[in-house]
Simulated scan of single mutants.
Amino acid sequence: MGGTEHLSVERVGATLVLTLNRPEAKNALSLAMLVGLYDGWLEADADDTVRSVVLTGAGGTFCAGMDLKALAGDGMDGQQHRTRLREDPDLHWKAMLRHHRPRKPVIAAVEGHCVAGGTEILQGTDIRVAGESAVFGLYEVRRGLFPIGGSTVRLPRQIPRTHALEMLLTGRPYSAVEAERVGLIGRVVPDGTALDAALETAERVNACAPLAVEAVKASVHETLAMTEEEGLATELERGWPLFDTADAMEGARAFAQKRQPRFKRA
Rank of each mutant, 00 (worst) to 15 (best):
P160E: 00
A256G: 08
G251N: 07
V182C: 08
D48P: 15
E237I: 14
E180C: 09
V12Q: 11
D67N: 15
R265M: 09
Q257I: 01
V205E: 06
L34T: 04
G2Y: 06
L211M: 12
I107W: 00
D88H: 08
V35G: 01
P23K: 03
D45N: 07
R253C: 07
R82L: 14
P89L: 05
R161D: 11
H81N: 11
L122Y: 02
N27G: 03
D244F: 11
M76G: 11
A225M: 11
L122M: 02
L18H: 02
T223E: 07
H6R: 01
V106E: 08
I185N: 00
K264G: 09
A46W: 05
L145I: 03
F62L: 09
A179K: 04
L236D: 09
L55E: 07
R142A: 09
A25D: 04
A254P: 08
S133L: 10
V205L: 13
L211Y: 09
N206P: 07
F136T: 00
G73T: 08
V213C: 10
A194Y: 05
P156L: 11
K258Q: 14
V177Y: 05
N21D: 15
E237L: 13
L37W: 02
E235C: 15
G131F: 10
A179W: 08
S151Q: 04
H92V: 15
T15D: 00
K26N: 10
A95D: 11
C63G: 06
P210E: 09
L34E: 07
R82C: 11
M76D: 15
V141L: 02
R98N: 05
P190V: 02
V189K: 00
V50T: 13
H100Y: 15
L145Y: 09
A225C: 10
Q260R: 09
G124L: 10
M249W: 14
E235N: 13
A233K: 15
E43C: 07
G117S: 11
R161K: 14
R103W: 09
V9L: 08
A109N: 01
P102D: 02
E87F: 10
P173F: 10
D45T: 13
D247C: 06
P23M: 02
V213L: 13
D191A: 06
L42Q: 15
G150F: 05
R128E: 01
L42C: 14
V129I: 15
I107C: 00
I127C: 03
L184H: 06
D126E: 00
L85P: 02
